[in-house]
Design a protein around this nucleic acid. Structure first.
Lengths: 213, 213
DNA sequence: CCGCAAACGTGAGTAATCCTCATATTTGCA
DNA sequence: TGCAAATATGAGGATTACTCACGTTTGCGG
């Protein structure tokens, strides 16, 4: 099942950098490069982002860019990884202290709202996760992230329904999480009003599945 | 051009062909081109599909290719449109004669299974819908298709629950349909066994939402 | 059957873009 | 201070989607 070539894009691996910045100077330069890339993505989308433009805006040569970010996908990946790390911490915190059904309701509802607001407000995140499907490395990152987040949900569910089949709870949590992300992507690509309705409908469906049985 | 799936231009419009084939000969050639493209996508994915390779395999010159298929996205789009037209007819037929909750259950369940089998069996469809998010024209096609399919579901729901708010039913049907497509994409990108479980879980969730209230 | 305009076919060439590499410069340290 | 390792550079290699000027075939009015 491995060669599936669904994406077709190369081997799907993120090439390791030729060089890992070890000096203060180069670390700062990498920061500038990523900031420049982020700005360009926000303006035009990652597809239209040109490597030369990133270098120019960061005030470095094209060679320097490739010294630490070995290819275009690596830039996107580096940005994506920051978002996931950041949001994962929030999610863990929000779900950690849930101990009953009502608490889950509140926490989950808030989480969905926060995520939706984030998607609406962050053009870079939006762009990156939209293109996720086309790039195997990004898809894998999102999958791993989603699994990690779903695990927090699973933990809560296991606590609330100790008699249920653990494997089924895992599947449910993972599916609900993935559907949440799909709903977000959908919601931001339609009219705002319809997007709001879709998110609300998702929330209702997910909650019903989470608390009731 | 690593991350670019099918794209290249900013507006999401599909360029109209320079020329619409009007002779028998050229119509057959276009068929050969699309068949070649389809085969290449199945082998390597649409991202790795090279225009020169398509022309070569179809036994035409690169110039002829561009005479009727004005750019790379147009090829993908043409293939995608055939799939949607075909599947939409199936869906309409499957849902047309549903008249009670149990019938809906059966029809929907069968539909999901059919769709899943199709996704598993058709590497081209799989590839195209995976890359959907990255290309505006394709996203629009999928959205339109999804809306059309959801409408069949909406019609059934309105018949079964005449007292419910029609707008809410529409939102629910559309969301369920979109989630189904998201689930398919997810299911084919993980281990077969987990994919099966996810599809089953989706089916259960969707049915609960559809028949019960 | 002829003439001819429109449709069709061709492939070398263009432009855009990702990425490499030989070379120059700077830094940290013995 | 001297020197190896790290860093910086940008012209150029390689790839690829797409164009265009010109040759060929088809259908059709007379």
């Amino acid at each position: 099942m491995e060669g599936s070539t669904v994406s077709g894009s190369q081997d799907g691996q993120i090439a390791s950098p030729r060089r890992t910045p070890s000096q203060q100077r180069s670390r700062e330069r990498v920061e500038r490069m990523l900031a420049a890339a982020s700005a360009l993505i926000a303006e035009q989308g990652s597809d239209a982002m040109r490597m030369g433009e990133v270098a120019k805006r960061a005030g470095v040569s094209i060679g320097s860019l490739y010294q630490f970010l070995p290819d275009k996908r690596a830039i996107i990946w580096a940005l994506a990884e920051r978002y996931t790390a950041e949001s994962q911490a929030c999610i863990a915190a929000a779900l950690a202290e849930v101990s009953d059904a009502e608490g889950l309701c509140r926490a989950f509802s808030e989480l969905v709202d926060t995520y939706y607001a984030l998607f609406l407000a962050e053009p870079v995140m939006r762009d990156i996760w939209s293109g996720t499907q086309a790039d195997k490395a990004l898809r894998d990152l999102e999958l791993a992230d989603s699994r990690a987040n779903a695990e927090f949900l699973t933990a809560v569910l296991k606590k609330l329904r100790p008699s249920a089949d653990p494997a089924a709870l895992e599947t449910t949590a993972f599916l609900i999480w993935q559907m949440g992300e799909a709903t977000m992507r959908l919601a931001i690509s339609v009219e705002r009003q319809e997007g709001d309705r879709l998110v609300a409908a998702y929330k209702r469906m997910a909650l019903r599945e989470l608390v009731d049985r």
